[in-house]
Computed example of a mutant assay.
Amino acid sequence: MSIPVFGLGTFRLQNEVVIDSVSNALDLGYRVIDTAQIYENEADIGTAISQSGIKREELFITTKIWIANLSKEKLIPSLQDSLKKLKTSYVDLTLIHWPSPNNEVSVAEYMAELVKAKELGLTRQIGVSNFTIALMQSAIDAIGAKNIATNQIELSPYLQNKQVVEFAKKHNISITSYMTLAYGKALQDEIIKNIAVRHKATPAQVILAWAMQSGYAVIPSSTKRENLASNLLAQQLNLSAEDMAEIASLECSDRLVSPEGLAPDWD
């Protein structure tokens, strides 16, 4: 994988809440942080990172370009603004957060701008988020699959997104899973709870381990230090083939994130 398999998500966390979450995570050993322009928390994350005293080169920071900034006039300036907020001269990964609604800005235009951002040293790697197979193909046609590090998609035991995963795999594009715990719904699943009991683990650890063993990167978030510490231990949990099959059986196409006016035509 060209990107780390385990990191910290910061969606919906702002102000002191995100500063505390990132500070606790860094103290516990997290070194991967995922944010986005639309989260409006880049400056607070920059504060938490600078206060931590951890060297920049030890961290892997991802941000995402919002749809209002996809044009060639706006993408790079918006990324430069994100870097100022994050108090860094570069990010490790920059993603297109959502495809441009109604293709107002073409895939070719904003992917080319991402390549320029990389050439300028503003970002080490580039990729996409919430892209369907057709959109991934357009991105590949524009800049080549080798330049696309990941597609960050909603992926949980209830929405396993197999078609997109297989297409990405065929083109050596990694998958980053978000909403891996299905807004916490999957934590209450009896099958997952039973697997957790067998392994003396938490349901969250089981789900995160399932995703990582399936080959995906994960970016769970939490505001509680004990949950941050517990989630980190998912990396040490080894599920059996039987466990993996039981979780795979939970697929039910239960998509939780599909904002009207923003979501593409899902596969």
Rank of each mutant, 00 (worst) to 15 (best):
residue 72 K to G: 05
residue 32 V to G: 05
residue 31 R to D: 07
residue 21 S to H: 02
residue 71 S to F: 03
residue 22 V to E: 11
residue 40 E to Y: 11
residue 69 N to C: 10
residue 85 K to A: 13
residue 71 S to P: 01
residue 76 I to V: 15
residue 71 S to T: 14
residue 61 I to W: 02
residue 49 I to Q: 04
residue 33 I to H: 00
residue 77 P to G: 13
residue 69 N to F: 08
residue 15 N to I: 04
residue 46 G to Y: 12
residue 77 P to Q: 12
residue 27 D to S: 15
residue 11 F to V: 02
residue 78 S to F: 07
residue 70 L to P: 07
residue 69 N to L: 08
residue 88 T to Q: 00
residue 65 I to W: 04
residue 76 I to S: 06
residue 60 F to G: 14
residue 16 E to W: 06
residue 63 T to S: 06
residue 67 I to D: 04
residue 88 T to E: 09
residue 27 D to R: 14
residue 91 V to K: 08
residue 51 Q to H: 02
residue 11 F to C: 04
residue 55 K to E: 11
residue 27 D to M: 11
residue 87 K to Y: 04
residue 74 K to R: 15
residue 64 K to D: 00
residue 78 S to K: 05
residue 54 I to R: 10
residue 42 E to I: 01
residue 61 I to Q: 01
residue 85 K to V: 09
residue 13 L to R: 03
residue 56 R to Y: 07
residue 23 S to R: 02
residue 60 F to W: 15
residue 19 I to Y: 03
residue 84 K to N: 11
residue 28 L to D: 10
residue 52 S to C: 11
residue 82 S to G: 01
residue 70 L to A: 10
residue 81 D to F: 04
residue 65 I to K: 06
residue 18 V to S: 02
residue 78 S to Y: 07
residue 89 S to V: 14
residue 43 A to I: 03
residue 41 N to T: 01
residue 81 D to T: 06
residue 59 L to T: 01
residue 35 T to F: 08
residue 18 V to Y: 00
residue 90 Y to W: 14
residue 47 T to L: 09
residue 30 Y to W: 14
residue 20 D to R: 00
residue 91 V to N: 09
residue 13 L to E: 07
residue 29 G to E: 12
residue 88 T to R: 03
residue 21 S to Y: 01
residue 77 P to V: 09
residue 38 I to Q: 03
residue 17 V to M: 05
residue 77 P to A: 09
residue 23 S to M: 04
residue 21 S to L: 11
residue 21 S to V: 09
residue 82 S to W: 03
residue 88 T to Y: 02
residue 73 E to D: 14
residue 67 I to L: 13
residue 68 A to P: 00
residue 21 S to A: 15
residue 83 L to E: 09
residue 68 A to S: 14
residue 30 Y to V: 15
residue 78 S to N: 05
residue 48 A to R: 09
residue 49 I to P: 05
residue 52 S to V: 12
residue 41 N to H: 00
residue 82 S to M: 02
residue 52 S to K: 10
residue 84 K to T: 13
residue 79 L to Y: 00
residue 20 D to E: 07
residue 25 A to W: 01
residue 12 R to I: 10
residue 33 I to Y: 00
residue 77 P to K: 09
residue 59 L to K: 03
residue 65 I to E: 09
residue 49 I to G: 08
residue 9 G to K: 12
residue 47 T to R: 07
residue 26 L to G: 04
residue 34 D to R: 01
residue 86 L to P: 06
residue 89 S to T: 14
residue 84 K to Q: 13
residue 53 G to N: 11
residue 74 K to C: 09
residue 85 K to R: 12
residue 68 A to H: 12
residue 38 I to D: 00
residue 27 D to W: 07
residue 43 A to M: 02
residue 69 N to K: 05
residue 49 I to N: 09
residue 45 I to W: 02
residue 31 R to T: 12
residue 85 K to G: 12
residue 78 S to M: 04
residue 69 N to Y: 08
residue 87 K to F: 01
residue 23 S to W: 08
residue 79 L to P: 00
residue 89 S to P: 08
residue 30 Y to H: 14
residue 85 K to W: 08
residue 17 V to R: 03
residue 48 A to F: 11
residue 49 I to K: 05
residue 79 L to D: 00
residue 20 D to Q: 00
residue 71 S to G: 10
residue 45 I to G: 00
residue 76 I to P: 02
residue 37 Q to G: 03
residue 87 K to S: 05
residue 81 D to M: 05
residue 58 E to S: 15
